[in-house]
């Protein structure tokens, strides 16, 4: 039985991933802002086989509380085996270009607050010399492009941070999984016109579960994004700067 801390439990992808773990009979400590939504997710996970689900409604970005929340989760479940960071926001790129405050908000939520969490989590797992950290990044972080580089910056910075963390924690036996989904049909992409590359949250959730169980380092979901991003990354800058991707 795994004891899993979930940051951003109301995320569509997080819910699907957790359903897979619930089927294994795991226990969860869920964090999100809305208590009513947490209750709905709790019942869903218990029905799917979770052995225990505890919830806490809190603002995930407020870094002052991260340590105390971690201690509360550990006490509540009797220890932690896995931490899953799934919260994030897709802001308005044009607005963030025009106004630093909007850009800051996106970078703060998607990167800086996650660093705060990773700091306390890494120290916790390193001390116990076991554990697994799973974080949802994005293919958008693989290269800055004109349509979403502020979101891309946050996710790109996050991916690099996780790389370093993976390196640091390896001797302690703690694994770090960077998840890079492509286009996913969730409330985050509600406004987008859904092209053929879109997949369901359930597909990504299952992919995260399998990658986590196999203790992978970096996973692109679905797999073909690994190929697509390799191409995108290797386009010479002199060419890429002229494109409208």
């Amino acid at each position: 039985m795994r004891r899993i801390l979930v940051l951003g439990a109301t995320s569509a992808i997080a819910q699907e991933t957790m359903r897979c773990f619930a089927a294994d009979g795991d226990a969860f400590f869920l964090l999100a802002r809305d208590a009513a939504k947490l209750e709905i997710i709790k019942n869903d996970l218990l029905t799917h086989g979770a052995v225990n689900v505890e919830c806490l409604a809190a603002d995930l970005v407020e870094s002052g509380r991260h340590n105390s929340i971690l201690q509360q989760a550990e006490a509540s479940l009797g220890g932690l085996d896995m931490a899953f960071i799934a919260y994030g926001v897709l802001g308005d790129q044009r607005k963030a270009e025009a106004c630093y405050k909007a850009a800051y908000r996106e970078l703060n939520i998607n990167f800086l607050s996650v660093v705060s969490w990773l700091t306390v989590l890494a120290n916790y797992f390193e001390k116990n010399r076991r554990g697994q950290i799973i974080v949802i990044s994005s293919v958008a972080g693989d290269r800055g492009r004109q349509s979403n580089y502020i979101y891309g910056t946050a996710k790109g910075a996050l991916s690099i941070f996780l790389q370093g963390l993976r390196n640091r924690l390896y001797p302690a036996g703690v694994s770090v999984l960077t998840v890079k989904p492509g286009f996913v049909d969730t409330p985050m992409t509600q406004a987008f016109k859904k092209g053929p590359l879109f997949v369901s949250a359930a597909t990504v959730g299952r992919g995260i579960y399998h990658a986590a169980v196999k203790k992978k380092d970096v996973v692109y979901l679905p797999w073909f994004w690994r190929v697509i991003m390799w191409v995108i990354r290797n386009i010479p800058e002199a060419v890429f700067k002229r494109l409208k991707l």
């Binding site: 019942n43 029905t47 799917h48």
Partner: peptide, 9 residues
């Protein structure tokens, strides 16, 4: 379409 939660069994 987003009311896809299970409640009890």
């Amino acid at each position: 379409e987003r009311l896809r939660h299970f409640i009890a069994f």
